[in-house]
Write a protein that binds this DNA or RNA. Structure first.
Length: 562
RNA sequence: GCGCCCGUAGCUCAGCUGGAUAGAGUACUUGGCUUCGAACCAAGUGGUCGGCGGUUCGAAUCCGUCCGGGCGCGCCA
């Protein structure tokens, strides 16, 4: 519709002297229904060029548009308002055709042709297997998965990827932590000591590493190893404990993701990047460009060349690369796999380091344009009214599973999707249950269940529909308002996908549910004459389609009964 | 000290590339179930959009500055 209006308006504008050649009229949906369905501020924008008042220009344009013969089936009225807005109202024909389209498209309404936009990679979660997924990871997981859904609906062929590293210092400490707990079980002579973790005293075996992992899951892994092998592992190195922990933790992580309805297409192990020494080739290439150099036994990346205050280490004096080097390699690998769009979902703590990666790959001659980053702000955990610093190592966290147990999977997903990624979230587990009762997700699901209920009821009473639905009977304001809302769905999805902002969809769906519920309250269906009831039933079914498809994009169930 | 994010109703948050009297949920007050689901609807109370300057016909939105909160600034990831 905007395209149509824009075309008409441009046509009219071309007849007027003084309008800049590159002038682009803009349209928007007014906040208030009094101002019509679409409005343009073109008269105000043109005032300076035409040296007339916006109001005069608006009236002139309105008259010209009228006499040019607008399709009244699409646009029923043009009004000039206030300081010089042009307000347009949709014609009913446009609305009824929209409704027809929704019913015809069904579960594909809002979905673009698969693969028509190319291939996309969404990398998210990417937590190293050192502990269970926490509420913080939950935000990442739900955001990433939903952006992936949005991209699918936007016509991308999407791969969901999880990047992880099971080598390095943290994993070594994980293995040592398990081993120490195992010794405590297998060897009755084990001595213990007490350590202080942020004011909490914790008893650990003597052999427990500094900065070891304190979560109970470590004990569980140790216990199951003892069950299986008895004390025969006492002389083993930490390696076997590490891999047991990794296996067990990954199983938990996958289970938690599955509960959220998330399926990863690919797990990318950082190790892969060291095959054929590819990452070291990167270092050589950077050296050739004078972007890498040796100092203090380490290899440095000259990030000051990109405007940073300091250079950063690429390879430690121990010979072990820092995360930055494989990250560059990883993103080059992604680019070489030929995706049209590469999305990364990061916590706010990565924001300062990612530019290094981009600068690195650019310096090596790659075009980083396909890469897009979603940064989400941290979830602040509140316990007993006090903010708690989340730390996997110190076992200070609320796991995603606990959250889902408490408030259900649907509420968990919606909780993360109803707010934009860049707001700081406060999360209080004690209040979560309470809050879940008033979570708007139920409102959306309720509206959906209601439509289903009406459909069931109609079947019960043996209601027969007209085959040829006469939409023009839908004249009630609640009906037209609802239709206007429903036909926005594709545009909302498109914009949400382009901006990678799922919360736009959840906000929109609430509006749909509200409009539907108002329609339901004001217009009866069963009991009305057959033709009116048929038309209203069609509107109810269209509402159901939008609610269902929207909830599907968000990864939330659309129950037929509640 | 430097970089990034945030500051909107009592609380949790929307507000799209600057637009018309700043919105929703929740909480509170009041009214509404003999009719398709009351997990609902209708109405009301509630805001100097953190402060101050600037750009603009027009600023919650853009720019500057200050205040307050979060996250970074590791040979951790």
């Amino acid at each position: 519709m905007q395209d149509y209006l824009k075309k008409q308006l441009l046509l009219v504008l071309s007849e007027i002297d003084g309008v800049p050649d590159d002038f682009e009229p803009e349209f928007e949906k007014p906040k208030s229904a009094e101002h019509g369905d679409l409005s343009s501020n073109a008269p105000m924008k043109l005032a300076r060029y035409l040296r007339k008042s916006p109001r005069q220009i608006a009236e002139d344009l309105a008259a010209r548009l009228q006499s040019a013969g607008l399709d009244t089936d699409r646009i029923s009225s043009i009004e000039v308002a206030d300081a010089g807005f042009l307000n347009f109202r949709y014609g009913t024909g446009f609305l009824y055709r929209g409704l027809e389209h929704i019913l015809g498209a069904g579960e594909d309404f809002g979905r673009k042709t698969p693969s028509s936009s190319g291939r996309a990679l969404v990398e998210f979660v990417s937590a190293n297997p050192t502990g269970p997924l926490t509420v913080g990871h939950g935000r990442n997981a739900v955001l990433g998965d939903t952006v992936a859904n949005l991209l699918e609906w936007a016509g991308y062929d999407v791969t969901r990827e999880y990047y992880f590293n099971d080598a390095g210092r943290q994993m070594r400490i994980l293995g040592q932590s398990v081993k120490a707990r195992y010794e405590a079980i297998a060897n009755p002579d084990t001595k213990f000591r007490t350590i202080d973790s942020d004011g909490i005293e914790i008893v650990v075996p003597e052999s427990f590493p500094e900065d070891g992992y304190l979560g109970d899951y470590i004990k569980d892994v140790a216990a199951s190893l003892f069950e299986k092998h008895g004390d025969t592992l006492l002389s083993e190195s930490e390696e076997i404990f590490k891999s047991a922990a990794e296996k067990s933790i990954f199983k938990e992580i996958n289970a938690a993701l599955k509960r959220l309805g998330i399926h990863m297409d690919s797990f990318f192990n950082e190790k892969t990047l060291y095959e054929n020494d590819r990452v070291y080739e990167i270092v050589d290439l950077l050296r050739e460009k004078d972007l890498a150099y040796d100092k203090d036994g380490a290899v440095w990346f000259r990030t000051t060349a990109f405007g940073k205050e300091k250079d950063t280490v690429l390879i430690k004096s121990t010979g072990e690369p820092t995360y930055r080097l494989p990250d560059i390699g990883y993103h080059i690998d992604k680019l070489e796999r030929g995706y049209n769009l590469i999305v990364n979902v990061f916590g706010a703590d990565h924001i300062a380091t990612f530019p290094d990666v981009l600068n690195g790959i650019r310096a090596l001659g790659y075009n980083p344009d396909p890469i897009d980053v979603i940064i989400y702000q941290f979830v602040t955990l509140i316990r007993n009214g006090q903010p708690v610093k989340m730390s996997t190592r110190k076992a200070q966290y609320v796991t995603l599973d606990e959250l889902m147990d408490e408030v259900s999977e649907d509420v968990t997903r919606f909780f993360f999707l109803m707010r934009s990624a860049h707001t700081h979230l406060e999360f209080d587990l004690d209040l979560a249950k309470e809050a879940s009762d008033t979570n708007p997700v139920f409102y959306l699901q309720y509206a959906h269940a209601r439509v289903c209920s009406i459909l069931r009821k109609a079947e019960e009473v043996g209601f027969s529909f007209d085959d040829d639905t006469n939409f023009s009977l839908l004249q009630h304001e609640a009906e037209t308002t609802l239709i206007k809302e429903l036909i926005l769905f594709p545009e909302v999805l498109e914009k949400a996908a382009a901006a990678r902002e799922p919360h736009r969809v959840s906000n929109y769906l609430r509006e749909v549910a509200t409009r539907f519920t108002q329609f339901y309250g004001q217009c009866r269906i069963i009991g009305e004459s057959t033709d009116l009831a048929s038309a209203r039933m069609a509107l109810a079914r269209a509402s159901r389609i939008v609610l269902k498809n929207g909830l599907t994009v968000l990864g939330i169930s659309a129950p037929e009964r509640m």
